[in-house]
Design a protein around this nucleic acid. Structure first.
Lengths: 319, 319
DNA sequence: CACGATTGATAAAACGTTTAATCAACCGAA
DNA sequence: TTCGGTTGATTAAACGTTTTATCAATCGTG
């Protein structure tokens, strides 16, 4: 049986209140007794019952993490970072999958509240207005989302990507995105457009209507650069080109976003823009704990994305 | 403020005990009163405080999920399945990352216990002996792990894979695995070996020493079939071959395991062996709840893997 | 020396639920 | 009528912690 406060108290002949005070440093306890109690506590490997504490204080020591789709290859990295950051400040992490839709998202929120989460980190669906839950929330999305608490600078990432290909001499660039429903992808595309020189030709290809793009014929049309809003689409493009006999990066350069698990492992390795998930997670958690513990609010933060140059981008071929 | 048991009780002029009994169906309450209480409860949108209940019953309603490495591309699918299965039976899921090592795994276990998890689902590191924690545990690994509770039949998956390529006429097959430290990979390789015909040449290439394999020169040596223990390595092989000008599946067939997120999206799409994570998760959760609630123990289960034929495997080229 | 302030510790209540023990009322049977 | 048994509800304790109010003792000061 785990030792309780009472056990320590009885052993030392003091009251449980004193023990509690000694351990938390809250009330008034003489230094000598405090040390004696703390020593005893560690000796007995005492660890407070979170349930008892939760009942009394109304705080469970758990935060909820709501992801639009756990199986999205980017989110594992986030989940890992969030878990690490939360653990560092003594919180557990409860996960929920919103199955990509708004209903699921609300269900998940409700479930988390029932479970007694002290706060929520959420990566929202586009267009979901975070109504006030009476619960601290940290939103991780894009800087253009008003409620956003911490995120990468996706728009600037877009700029960097477009700049990179143009610096390499590419004059006709295809931008590949999945769905207009993602604020992140929109911001990335927006950034790319912004950084385009007046004499650069480009076109955005949205894949949301599920039509498969034919990248090989795009090359025939003169495209030499491809920027996808995710490494997943970049991979799709890259393999399709290779299969069509188009050398990457010899005849076409391909780059993506997020530095997914496979991106370094493929041939050619994929040039990509990475976000610092650790930093974002740490900040999101800081925002949350500030709200929970009522300390000074933390500034929103926007973390720059960094270009990882690999082998899939090269100077444009001579025409 | 959330309504409490007392609020319902006061409103109806009964005792909190009666309300509790009416809602749980445990004690003795007249049918009429029971219905009246239940109606009132739903009308007030009552939901019991998990903390209060936890303190009294000693059960928190959350289970812990410990993953060796969240960023491994297979685990998201698992996490999602586990979360769904747990939610269905009313449990929340607390995640922890064991950072791939045994110490991290023990830390994670301890943290989960402190957090008051009622049980643990763990995907263990190879060779970790699950010491008795005094806490229900469900292990998800491979059938060859003695403590395993639910898993795919990885060995049989290996057999199916080897059979598939041999059926297509491949005579010289390269088996690609990452690390001997994974029971799963070992079982898959073992199954492949088992299914090899006497006249089939094959060789196992372990990548654990981080040497990059040169798949192109393997083709020059006469290999026409490649089976990787993960789609990740299969992808690596596939792109390397394509880059080297070797047509897949024209000159070489490539297949992998686990049907990762990208596997259907690449060109050619990847033939792979998939595991039914939902079924495995449901069963793992069933094992756990059986232990937690002290009901009849659930049989261990081994779920067959299914071959997903796509475009990366084809009949071996004529020699 | 007396009195207010400070220090060090305790007692007791509270958080919201479940459950064992209790109790009153009613019923049927001897 | 009386008594054991059943029914329907209540009372009170318990889970483990934190915290407010209380109290005794010591201290400093006028």
């Amino acid at each position: 049986m785990q030792p309780k406060l009472r056990d320590i108290a009885k052993d030392l002949g003091v009251s449980t209140a004193t023990v509690s005070n000694a351990l938390s440093g809250n009330g008034r306890v003489s230094v000598e007794l405090r040390d004696r109690i703390r020593a005893k506590a560690t000796a007995m490997a005492y660890s407070p019952s979170l349930q008892g504490r939760a009942l009394r204080t109304g705080r469970s020591g758990v935060i909820g993490l709501i992801l639009p789709d756990i199986s999205n290859p980017l989110f594992p990295a986030f989940a890992q970072s969030i878990e690490a950051a939360a653990e560092k400040v003594g919180y557990g992490v409860l996960i929920a999958d919103s199955h990509g839709n708004t209903d699921g998202q609300n269900d998940a929120l409700l479930r988390m509240m029932r479970q007694g989460a002290d706060g929520i980190v959420i990566i929202p669906r586009r267009g979901t207005r975070m109504k006030d839950l009476g619960l601290p929330v940290a939103v991780v999305d894009t800087p253009s989302t008003p409620e956003n608490s911490a995120s990468a600078d996706h728009q600037d990432g877009g700029r960097i990507a477009a700049q990179h290909l143009q610096d390499l001499g590419h004059k006709k660039i295809a931008l590949i995105a999945d769905s207009r429903n993602s604020s992140v992808q929109n911001d990335r595309i927006e950034g790319m457009k912004e950084a385009m020189n007046p004499d650069t030709e480009y076109c955005v290809f949205w894949q949301e209507d599920n039509r498969r793009l034919d990248f090989v014929s795009l090359v025939a049309e003169g495209y030499t650069g491809f920027i996808a809003t995710s490494d997943l689409y970049a991979l799709s493009a890259l393999t399709q080109l290779q299969r069509g006999g188009i050398s990457v990066p010899g005849l076409a350069s391909v780059m993506g976003f997020d530095d997914l698990a496979f991106s370094a492992a493929i041939a050619p390795s994929l040039t990509t823009l990475a976000q610092d998930t650790d930093q974002i997670a740490t900040h999101a958690i800081a925002c949350l704990t500030a709200q929970i513990e009522g300390t000074a609010p933390v500034q929103k933060v926007v973390v720059p994305m960094t270009l990882i140059k690999r082998d899939s981008t090269k100077a444009a071929p001579e025409t």
